[in-house]
Amino acid sequence: THFTSQQLQELEATFQRNHYPDMSTREEIAVWTNLTEARVRVWFKNRRAKWR
């Protein structure tokens, strides 16, 4: 999946605040970024792996 810079900005900003967002937070992010909750969940999983 290719993310727009706007989507990445929103995802990264949320990641800085919370590395493990809950389901409702992921659903909110999905609405803001026009992505599915599953895409958001996978992005956070991959981002945490990169962060370690």
Score class of each variant (00 low, 15 high):
residue 39 R to P: 01
residue 16 Q to V: 08
residue 50 K to Y: 08
residue 23 M to H: 13
residue 3 F to R: 02
residue 33 T to D: 01
residue 1 T to C: 12
residue 41 R to Y: 06
residue 2 H to C: 12
residue 44 F to P: 00
residue 19 H to Q: 09
residue 46 N to T: 09
residue 23 M to R: 15
residue 36 T to H: 04
residue 4 T to N: 08
residue 20 Y to L: 03
residue 13 A to C: 11
residue 13 A to Y: 10
residue 49 A to T: 07
residue 23 M to E: 09
residue 27 E to T: 12
residue 6 Q to M: 10
residue 24 S to D: 09
residue 32 W to R: 15
residue 44 F to R: 00
residue 51 W to A: 08
residue 4 T to Y: 05
residue 45 K to T: 07
residue 17 R to D: 08
residue 33 T to N: 07
residue 25 T to W: 06
residue 10 E to M: 15
residue 30 A to C: 06
residue 45 K to A: 10
residue 42 V to C: 09
residue 19 H to A: 06
residue 4 T to K: 03
residue 42 V to E: 12
residue 27 E to Y: 11
residue 29 I to L: 12
residue 17 R to N: 09
residue 49 A to R: 15
residue 49 A to I: 11
residue 44 F to I: 01
residue 19 H to I: 05
residue 20 Y to N: 06
residue 9 Q to P: 02
residue 34 N to R: 07
residue 26 R to N: 02
residue 34 N to Q: 10
residue 47 R to S: 02
residue 45 K to F: 08
residue 3 F to S: 03
residue 44 F to W: 02
residue 40 V to P: 00
residue 41 R to T: 06
residue 12 E to A: 00
residue 35 L to M: 10
residue 28 E to S: 09
residue 18 N to R: 02
residue 1 T to M: 12
residue 39 R to Q: 15
residue 47 R to N: 01
residue 14 T to C: 12
residue 15 F to Y: 06
residue 2 H to T: 10
residue 6 Q to P: 05
residue 39 R to S: 13
residue 19 H to T: 02
residue 14 T to A: 15
residue 33 T to A: 07
residue 48 R to V: 07
residue 50 K to C: 09
residue 49 A to H: 09
residue 4 T to Q: 03
residue 23 M to W: 11
residue 20 Y to G: 01
residue 7 Q to D: 03
residue 26 R to K: 04
residue 31 V to E: 12
residue 29 I to K: 01
residue 51 W to D: 10
residue 30 A to G: 07
residue 50 K to W: 08
residue 43 W to K: 02
residue 40 V to Q: 00
residue 34 N to E: 07
residue 6 Q to Y: 14
residue 16 Q to P: 03
residue 8 L to W: 10
residue 28 E to H: 09
residue 15 F to C: 04
residue 8 L to D: 05
residue 8 L to V: 09
residue 21 P to F: 03
residue 17 R to I: 12
residue 43 W to Q: 00
residue 9 Q to W: 14
residue 12 E to D: 03
residue 37 E to N: 04
residue 37 E to W: 04
residue 15 F to N: 01
residue 10 E to Y: 15
residue 24 S to K: 14
residue 24 S to E: 12
residue 37 E to F: 04
residue 6 Q to S: 10
residue 6 Q to G: 08
residue 45 K to G: 04
residue 39 R to W: 09
residue 16 Q to L: 11
residue 13 A to R: 14
residue 39 R to G: 10
residue 42 V to W: 14
residue 23 M to L: 12
residue 47 R to A: 05
residue 46 N to L: 12
residue 50 K to D: 09
residue 8 L to Q: 08
residue 5 S to E: 11
residue 11 L to M: 05
residue 14 T to I: 15
residue 21 P to S: 02
residue 7 Q to F: 05
residue 18 N to Q: 06
residue 30 A to D: 01
residue 27 E to F: 14
residue 38 A to H: 14
residue 38 A to S: 12
residue 22 D to F: 02
residue 42 V to Q: 15
residue 18 N to V: 07
residue 15 F to Q: 01
residue 4 T to A: 03
residue 47 R to D: 01
residue 38 A to M: 13
residue 33 T to C: 10
residue 19 H to W: 05
residue 49 A to C: 07
residue 52 R to G: 07
residue 48 R to Q: 06
residue 31 V to Y: 14
residue 32 W to G: 10
residue 1 T to D: 13
residue 26 R to C: 05
residue 16 Q to F: 07
residue 48 R to L: 07
residue 48 R to W: 03
residue 3 F to K: 03
residue 33 T to K: 01
residue 10 E to T: 15
residue 21 P to M: 04
residue 16 Q to K: 10
residue 33 T to S: 06
residue 35 L to A: 07
residue 21 P to H: 01
residue 31 V to K: 14
residue 13 A to K: 11
residue 44 F to T: 00
residue 37 E to K: 03
residue 9 Q to Y: 13
residue 18 N to D: 07
residue 25 T to Y: 07
residue 33 T to F: 14
residue 32 W to K: 15
residue 51 W to N: 07
residue 13 A to G: 06
residue 22 D to P: 07
residue 13 A to Q: 09
residue 41 R to I: 04
residue 45 K to Q: 09
residue 24 S to W: 08
residue 2 H to R: 14
residue 20 Y to I: 01
residue 36 T to S: 09
residue 2 H to E: 12
residue 51 W to C: 13
residue 26 R to T: 05
residue 27 E to M: 15
residue 23 M to P: 05
residue 9 Q to R: 12
residue 24 S to M: 10
residue 14 T to E: 14
residue 7 Q to S: 04
residue 12 E to V: 03
residue 7 Q to C: 05
residue 40 V to I: 11
residue 1 T to F: 14
residue 14 T to W: 15
residue 38 A to G: 08
residue 46 N to A: 13
residue 48 R to D: 02
residue 18 N to P: 00
residue 6 Q to I: 10
residue 46 N to R: 15
residue 18 N to K: 04
